[in-house]
């Protein structure tokens, strides 16, 4: 008996997420199952809906597997949003991704991921500040700017820095920057390459503020339909080790992306001193309290989760 699974994502089929992750995953699972698992990959929301609908599509069995950005389903993965808090991150994807998996398996698998088999939660490379006109050298430079973000807590971080967060879907960001609708964004290095953001955002303050979370989730019923030997194939291609491998691939994109940004005409890469970074970290403290309160409100042990979050990420390194 063969099993056909449909994999849906909003990402472009030529993007890293497909060529290096989803397409390969589909191929590997197909091969290792001796062709008994067939994964059909549908990029670019080909099966309809908006990015915000992907999680529900997987929950409802419209598709079997989805790939999405945690922040696109606000309120759905509040615990995962903790991993996106500012300055809790490890700096590279190869360290942050296994940290995320460890935290999720310990604290989130039985709550917000109950309906899913977690294939992999991995992180982007480091997200830094990119601005169009005003270079950010100190915390005060944020005052009055409009910064595009994707995610509630990064929005609160931007507010804590004195700027206004603005939510714009990814395909609209280039134009929004070009037109001055926003003054900058907080986004990871790798994504600036395919979207060519360096053509419009000239200043890059290279300090790792946070790392976004990318989710590859499988409908649990689809997973449980498999006989044990085929489940083992899925298991072998998911979890902490797989997340670490994804992280290494993501990290391989950082250097070329930084080079492209540095070499684009008129661009400047700014570094800040540890003292300045400490001021940013201090400014971000209230955001942690917001997340802890949110966890408590949901009946989860907020403070304990936060302490564990800090401990696990510190174990893998600190940006």
């Amino acid at each position: 008996q063969t099993f056909t699974f449909r994999l849906h994502s909003f990402s472009s089929p030529t993007a890293l997420d497909h060529t290096m992750h989803l397409d390969r995953w589909a191929e590997t699972v197909g091969r290792e199952s001796g062709g008994r698992i067939k994964v059909e990959v549908y990029p670019a929301l080909q099966l309809g809906g908006q990015a915000r609908d992907l999680v529900q599509q997987a929950e409802d069995g419209v598709v079997d597997i989805i790939w999405t950005v945690a922040g696109f389903s606000p309120g759905r993965f509040p615990g995962t949003e903790g991993l996106e808090l500012p300055f809790v991150n490890t700096g590279t994807s190869a360290t942050m991704s296994p940290a995320a998996m460890e935290f999720a398996e310990k604290h989130l698998a039985d709550t917000e991921y109950r309906a899913f088999k977690i294939i992999c939660i991995h992180s982007t490379d480091r997200s830094v500040v990119h601005t169009t006109r005003r270079p950010i050298r100190t915390l005060e430079d944020f005052r009055g700017l409009r910064i595009r973000v994707a995610g509630r807590f990064i929005g609160e971080t931007v507010s804590a820095f004195g700027a206004t967060p603005v939510g714009i879907p990814l395909p609209g960001v280039y134009e929004a920057l070009a037109r001055g609708q926003v003054d900058g964004m907080m986004i990871n290095w790798a994504i600036t390459l395919p979207y060519r953001f360096f053509e419009v955002a000239k200043y890059h303050t290279d300090t790792a503020v946070f790392q976004g979370m990318l989710l590859t989730l499988m409908n649990r019923r689809s997973y449980e339909r498999l006989p044990p030997d085929l489940r083992a194939v899925i298991d072998a291609n998911s979890g902490i080790n797989y997340a670490k491998k994804m992280g290494e691939i993501w990290d391989s994109q950082t250097a070329p992306a930084i080079a492209a940004n540095r070499d684009a005409p008129g661009n400047e890469i700014i570094t800040i001193s540890p003292q300045e970074r400490a001021r940013w970290v201090a400014a971000a403290q209230p955001v942690y309290q917001t997340w802890i309160r949110e966890m408590n409100r949901l009946g989860r042990p907020g403070q304990q989760m936060f302490d564990d979050l800090m401990a696990i990420t510190a174990k893998y390194g600190r940006a």
């Binding site: 099966l47 908006q50 609908d53 529900q56 599509q57 879907p169």
Partner: peptide
């Protein structure tokens, strides 16, 4: 191709997503 329930489930979000799009 996909089955009746996947269709019915995708229709839960498809119309409102199409109507409520900023672009």
């Amino acid at each position: 191709i996909s089955g009746l329930w996947p269709l019915l489930n995708t229709l839960k979000t498809l119309p409102f997503s199409r109507f409520s799009s900023y672009t």
